[in-house]
């Protein structure tokens, strides 16, 4: 494991994330022997109050700290082995969003949120154009 990689962005230039209002948490899972991305998500606006509170609490552990670095560390590099999952968790809140990438085995502190999101409804694949193809005989850019 190679440590943290926080890809979070804060339009407000930093400061603790404001999770008191509506938040949306999206899990994208890549890799695995299947190789298919899976996208799931939860929105506090669509949850009962107690479940919304649980989601806020778990999301707060991910976004803690002024620059997001105080939460459980994201893991940017791949571990040894093959066919492991890579998880990208995105927390959208009023005034910003934080995105963290975790390679298996994920840190203990992230597991409760991951477990919750793994049971969330599936979402459509991330919008955007299909991946481009290279010409015959080409090779991917490294």
């Amino acid at each position: 494991m190679t440590g943290d990689r926080n890809t979070g962005s804060r339009p407000d230039g930093g400061g603790p994330a404001d999770l008191a209002g509506r938040i949306r948490v999206i899990l994208e899972r890549y890799g695995g022997i299947i190789g298919r991305p899976v996208r799931r998500g939860l929105d506090t606006a669509q949850l009962p109050a107690d479940q919304a509170a649980t989601l806020r609490s778990l999301a707060a552990s991910l976004t803690a700290g002024p620059d997001g670095t105080a939460g459980p560390g994201g893991t940017g590099g791949g571990p040894a082995g093959a066919d492991r999952f890579v998880y990208v968790i995105e927390v959208e809140f009023q005034g910003g969003r934080v995105e963290r990438t975790f390679h298996e085995p994920v840190p203990e502190g992230v597991r409760p949120l991951l477990t919750l999101l793994s049971r969330a409804p599936r979402l459509p694949a991330r919008p955007g154009p299909p991946p481009p193809s290279s010409p015959a005989g080409g090779s991917p850019r490294r």
Binding site: Y30, G31, G32, G35, V86, P131, S134, G137, G138, P140
Partner: peptide, 20 residues
């Protein structure tokens, strides 16, 4: 893909290791 014509360039799945 079954041919280099369809080679998929992607940043996910370690560069599409399970695709290509």
């Amino acid at each position: 893909p079954a041919h280099m014509d369809g080679y998929v360039r992607t940043t996910t799945d370690n560069g599409g290791v399970h695709i290509n």
